[in-house]
Design a protein around this nucleic acid. Structure first.
Lengths: 229, 229
DNA sequence: GCAGCCGATATTGTAGACAATCATGTTGAT
DNA sequence: ATCAACATGATTGTCTACAATATCGGCTGC
């Protein structure tokens, strides 16, 4: 969460791990050894521990005393709860954006949409994931609530973990069409329409998940093909 | 945030610091030296650093590289933002509680109200503050959203910091009467009434603050009567 | 064949010493 | 009197060595 302009080493570690998780390069259950991270980021273990402590608060990492850290493995209940929180927060953020929309805001949203389309056209998975979350973060920024934007950023990365856990088929994340629908409603100044479009969009993502069958956690049951973080 | 049943030393440090901040025993700008905290909690500095990293994510503490930690000093803009977030989240939590209310839930709310009244009668400031926040946390728990409850817990302690910064006169926090009004609406199954009562309650707290004059931060301008944390 | 115990391994947790960084105070030159 | 340079103090950041803890696998006894 780049909330400070000057990025400390801990900020950098958190951001890069956040991004790796959001892009699903680090999957739920992956081990995060202090010594490994210390070597990768060229910092002391004390720094790494601080970064991991932060990520634990954000729910992205689970720390086990004397055992080490793993990327979090959200349960089905947690998954449902996260979507409930997203509906709550994004409903209010999108309402605020629509109510106070400016030409500049619309331009930025349109520009972002073009970037998403371009990423889809070139089938750039990493960019698609990043821009998908980026759209919601842009909404948060335009809504002018630093706090809820920070919470949303956390929710987006947790959503990515959930998708990594429970998406049974390789379905695309949120396609740009649904983002465009939201932008269209904002442009029309239709507050209720904007809220409905966002709610539908989030429901679409949630319904693409298999939230009926609990997945065995990697930390509970060893994978058949054991893989390391 | 006691989210785990077994409390680690880091959990304990965070909880006690959280409580000291919520009860306004630790005031905005107070210094938090690693060595001091290490001695107080009988743990290594590494532990203290992890705890401070967590509290930084929660917005309760500000870490300055090579300078140390201080209790956060929220700005007016942050204060407004926090109340915006509270309205957003508590609106939804209280809606859910009212919609799915059970006799047991009502009993717990009533019992809590009695505790608040008793604390007011014996003029127990520490208990008043704790129970005041506890009422909102109970709403979060009864709403069944672990995530938003955690966020709310963070918002409550940040609210306490804001009150410490911007409450010009020694006004009581939320009096039990407004809590009773909310409970009454829940009991009646009046969803809209419950939301209005909560919104009014939060507005009451916000309006008791002086959010027009920015306070000089302790870390920016030395107090005339210097005091240490 | 199974349960319990023990040793090994992996990784975190701690402590102490010292380096690094930043702010403040002092001193000397103008 | 003012300013710049330097010294000092306060506190965090790093490193290293080793302690502590949890897990796992092998061996033994029943």
């Amino acid at each position: 969460m780049p909330t400070k302009t000057a990025q400390t080493p801990i900020d950098e570690i958190c951001n890069r791990l956040w991004l790796a998780i959001a892009e699903r390069k680090l999957r739920p259950g992956a081990r995060l050894k202090e010594e490994d991270l210390s070597a990768v980021f060229s910092v002391s273990r004390a720094r790494v521990r601080q970064a991991l402590a932060r990520l634990e608060v954000s729910g992205l990492v689970t720390l086990m005393p004397n055992r080490g850290a793993v990327v979090a493995e959200p349960s089905i209940e947690e998954a449902r709860d996260i979507f409930f929180a997203r509906r709550t927060i994004e409903d209010r953020l999108v309402e605020r954006v629509c109510t106070n929309v400016t030409p500049d805001a619309l331009a930025r949203l349109r520009a972002h949409l073009e970037e998403e389309r371009a990423a889809h056209e070139r089938d750039d998975t990493s960019a698609i994931i990043q821009l998908s979350g980026g759209f919601h973060l842009l909404i948060g920024e335009l809504a002018g609530s630093r706090y809820l934007s920070d919470v949303l950023r956390e929710l987006i990365s947790r959503t990515s973990l959930i998708i990594a856990m429970y998406q049974s088929r390789t379905a695309p994340d949120c396609g740009p069409q649904e983002h465009e629908e939201i932008i269209r409603m904002i442009e029309a100044g239709d507050v209720d329409g904007t809220k409905r479009a966002m709610a539908k969009h989030l429901a679409h993502i949630e319904n693409a998940l298999d939230l009926k069958h609990d997945k065995p956690r990697q930390s509970e049951l060893k994978d058949i093909l054991a893989r390391d973080g």
